[in-house]
Amino acid sequence: MGTVRGCNIPEDLYYNVENNVWVRKEDDGTVTVGMTAYACSLAGEIVSYTPKKVGKDVAKDKSAATVESGKWVGPLKAPVSGAITATNPDVAANPGLINKDPYGNGWVVKLQPSDWDGESGELKTGADALAAFESKMDADGFGGC
């Protein structure tokens, strides 16, 4: 587990650093997507979660879900294009689960990627992700999680 300014950044995941989302490739070819700990810290306690419907095609960098906290409402942008195959009923019942377990039970959507090989090359992982988040946090003036 990597850590940048107190924010957990698991090094085995892929990240769209600019959009503060992570993606994990699953054995069945789907990908699980969620908010980073950094995004959770910026947003505060998540109080609402509205995912796109299962079967909906989502383009890379377009909204796969809308999340809302006491101080922010915004899209969770898909790190790759694909069709939504699942939404998280546990998060629907308890949106704060995103904050409590962003990389585990707080996942937001699952996608069947339409072009993983073509689009995943832009995602960061491992030490590259940690360095990219350090740069982003520095540019954003972020003190830490």
Rank of each mutant, 00 (worst) to 15 (best):
C40W: 01
A92S: 15
A93I: 12
Y14M: 15
D128N: 13
Y38K: 00
P10G: 07
L13Q: 00
K60I: 04
S135E: 15
I46M: 12
G118P: 03
A43Y: 03
A139I: 15
A127E: 11
T66Q: 12
K25S: 11
G2H: 07
A59N: 11
Q112I: 01
M1W: 02
D115V: 03
N105C: 08
D27V: 13
V108L: 12
Y15I: 02
L123S: 03
Q112L: 12
T85Y: 07
K60Q: 14
G144F: 15
K52F: 09
L111N: 03
D57G: 11
V4M: 00
N20G: 09
L130Y: 01
W72D: 00
W107I: 02
V17K: 00
G82C: 05
I9Q: 00
L76G: 05
K52N: 13
I84C: 03
T30Q: 14
D140V: 13
G74V: 03
D115K: 08
T36V: 02
K25N: 13
T30H: 10
T66Y: 10
K100F: 02
C7L: 05
N94S: 15
V108I: 12
V47Q: 08
P102M: 09
I46K: 11
N99P: 02
V80Y: 04
S63F: 11
M137S: 00
W72N: 05
N8A: 15
M137H: 01
P79Q: 01
Y38E: 03
V4K: 01
A37G: 04
L13A: 07
L97M: 10
K56M: 12
G44N: 04
N19P: 09
A64E: 07
C7M: 05
R24Y: 07
S114R: 02
